[in-house]
Design a binder for these strands. Structure first.
Lengths: 155, 155
DNA sequence: GCCTATCCGATTGTGCACAATTCGGTAGTA
DNA sequence: TACTACCGAATTGTGCACAATCGGATAGGC
């Protein structure tokens, strides 16, 4: 923000929007707050949050086709293509056409990308600490969010 | 999406990310689902979700300086400036320097912008129906989200 | 072997989020 | 009055989300 108005929930509550907007609005605000925390926590790694998600999937699964990453992270090809190119330029991964199916592009972490896992080791703990939720609270919130998302998707 | 992979929560659950990521991930997915619904519901109005938020504040408050809109909606000037210009070009509002303080720009809905309220009349109800939550459930979820956002902001 | 439907990725264009900077305007102070 | 500190919008640049489209590749039916 260009000024100091990022102060947590100050002016908004005293002058609320119409009631129906609140839920989606709070959802966005919370996502934004998460974004701020991830930005700070990931600063050392040089990754953005979506890029961190990609690295986590590569650390967990090893090489993956773009299509699979898209499914796992629900990221569009229009998002993934330039994102993966930036990460390739940063030396974190390689992109190569599959020999078996030349439509498919296989993404593989480089040694540098794999090594970044050590730098990112504390990220989960720091995020968890910042959220300040118990495992039960987090799980309950997840349940609510998933039910809501399912309902929205189904509508 | 370019293909049919937007199917609600299919492949993700069978092959989960690390546990710590889930909460933020579900948050993003739910925000995305809300985005889809708002896009559909707002299609008739020609507004995007952030633009709808601006119109709602103008319908509620009448004319407002940009700074106030920024505070109410937590939108950055780098976001608001081009957004308001597009809305001005669409004939929904006017932007004029305040006579009292020429640093300030006052945003006013046009007649067309005010009339759009009728077109958007059913938006709250449709969103509520799509979410499928009782008032209690929605309120509880809001509480959780606000507590979480506050904790993240404070960290 | 050929044709067609389908799949996959990349690309293009628009809109939003955030950081950093710029610039004019205002107000407080010497 | 002149100087300075601060304020408010706008701009620039980067990155992500989504829609629409294209072109290459595969597989199935004939």
């Amino acid at each position: 923000m260009a000024d100091g108005s990022r102060t947590p929930h100050a002016e908004v509550e005293e002058d609320p929007l119409l009631l129906d907007l609140h839920l989606c609005f709070d959802l966005h605000n919370t996502a934004r707050a998460f974004g701020d925390v991830y930005r700070r926590v990931l600063r050392e790694t040089g990754l953005t949050y979506p890029q961190y998600l990609v690295m986590v999937t590569l650390w967990e699964h090893g090489e993956l086709p773009v299509k699979r990453i898209s499914q796992l992270l629900r990221l569009d090809s229009g998002t993934l293509s330039p994102l993966l190119k930036r990460m390739e330029a940063a030396g974190l991964l390689t992109r190569n056409r599959s020999l078996a199916d030349e439509r498919s592009v296989i993404v593989r972490p480089t040694a540098e990308g794999t090594a970044l896992r050590d730098t990112a080791r504390d990220v989960p703990r720091e995020i968890h600490a910042a959220a300040g939720l118990s495992a039960q609270e987090a799980s309950a919130l997840q349940q609510s969010l998933r039910r809501l998302a399912a309902s929205l998707d189904a509508s």
